[in-house]
Design a protein around this nucleic acid. Structure first.
Lengths: 152, 152
DNA sequence: TCCTTAATGTAGCCTATGCTACATTCTGCA
DNA sequence: TGCAGAATGTAGCATAGGCTACATTAAGGA
């Protein structure tokens, strides 16, 4: 008795075999990646190089967590991180950093334009920026452009 | 030799002892919780009760994942879920659902008011709503109120 | 009433993200 | 040059959130 054979259907999420952790999950992973890449770009810009210690201070996690995330970033092709050396962005990583930074700035400027304080705008932008679609980003830009015209 | 004793500092994240998984992580957990509570409230409203299967269909994960998340929600005091029965919201859960729903609607309306399509507004709102501070939400409301006045 | 089937529960595995504790390598200064 | 201390690496643990496979319970129709 018991289970006769296949339950023919089991459940629904069938898409990929193993690569199927749903939208939210995948997006969360992406968020973290983006935050790291952005922070790395900032560090390189500010101090010439990105070190694990500095990253961990900036992001607020231990150096161990940073190291492992960097490993994943390296596997994904965003960074190169030779043992005991600094972290370097690949071209792919640089491109991602640039687009993240641009998006971040637009979101902050947009929030700010609504009368939201500098501080809150920055804090909220960090959470919001990862969930803004191209269409919404365009709308933000459009809104900013309008404001700019009016101000002229 | 080797490690003399305590490395006096180890690393930085010292706040709580164990309860210290950083901001991003904690917020992500909250997001999932909120999504579930909202979905449960919707299901109860629409069909009289929230069942695990329906939730899993709605959220897009297997019933196993739903079950475990519900366990956590139960431990956190948001729901009650007797074995083989439906899922019930506690007063705390109901309150959370209400405030999430309100916030969600404001974000959607706001995005829509910027000329963003219904569909994108809804999709983006799902990601954005969890990262909107009280101040920003107020600004959104304010913006909507202004528009409403102009339209009159 | 029984028995099939849908819903629910449980066991066990995986990855991502955190952590502490400890080991190793680099680096700068005495 | 050598060595102390900082930076980096590694081992091992925890939790959240995914999954498949299988077991158990509930519910409805023959």
């Amino acid at each position: 008795m018991s289970h006769n054979s296949e339950q023919e259907d089991h459940d629904l999420p069938v898409e990929g075999n193993s690569v199927s952790f749903s939208k939210t999950r995948r997006e969360h992973s992406t968020e973290i990646m983006e935050d790291y890449v952005e922070a790395i770009a900032d560090l390189i810009f500010e101090s010439g190089e990105a070190r694990v210690v500095e990253l961990s201070r900036r992001i607020g996690v231990t150096h161990v967590t940073v190291t492992r995330t960097i490993d994943r970033l390296e596997k994904a092709g965003y960074v190169i991180c030779p043992p005991y050396r600094a972290i370097f962005l690949t071209e792919k990583g640089n491109a991602l950093a640039r687009s993240c930074k641009e998006r971040h700035q637009i979101v902050v400027a947009f929030l700010h334009s609504l009368g939201i304080s500098e501080q809150t705008a920055n804090l909220d932008a960090e959470g919001i920026e990862h969930h803004v679609s191209t269409e919404t980003l365009q709308a933000f830009k459009h809104h900013l452009a309008l404001l700019h015209k009016v101000t002229l």
